[in-house]
Amino acid sequence: MEFWIELVVSVFLVVGAVFVLIGSLGLAKLPDFYTRLHGPTKATTLGMGCLLAASVILVTYQQGYLSLHELLITLFLLITAPVTAHMLAKTAMHHNLEILDKTSNKALTKRARDRINP
């Protein structure tokens, strides 16, 4: 295998895995639910994008034809991640989960919960 393809694939794999780890690290260490929501929705999505890009490059090189079907998973995750985050935030608000004390505009959750204007 050519050196530079191996290099690009390896870099994509490691960077993607690091982003996946950062997303889970955010899930494990951040203090309240709403801040925890940020890690998995953003970092994990980009991490998966990197891993799947590595897979696209490697399979295209190995098989000799353009293989794009991993893109389907990337697109699917990109579309569903915000929907999941929105539904989880909605659920958390309806459950009155405790919010970090230093959060500003905490009163807005009550307005948002009843879907009325601020």
């Binding site: 996946v20 899930l27 639910f33 998995p40 998966m48 995750l77 989880l88 659920t91 958390a92």
Partner: peptide, 18 residues
């Protein structure tokens, strides 16, 4: 809370895809 557990499961399935 329950939303925390759902979020953890959600992240777990994405990581298992990885």
């Amino acid at each position: 809370g329950r939303p925390d557990r759902i979020l953890a499961l959600d992240t777990m399935y994405i990581n298992s895809i990885a």
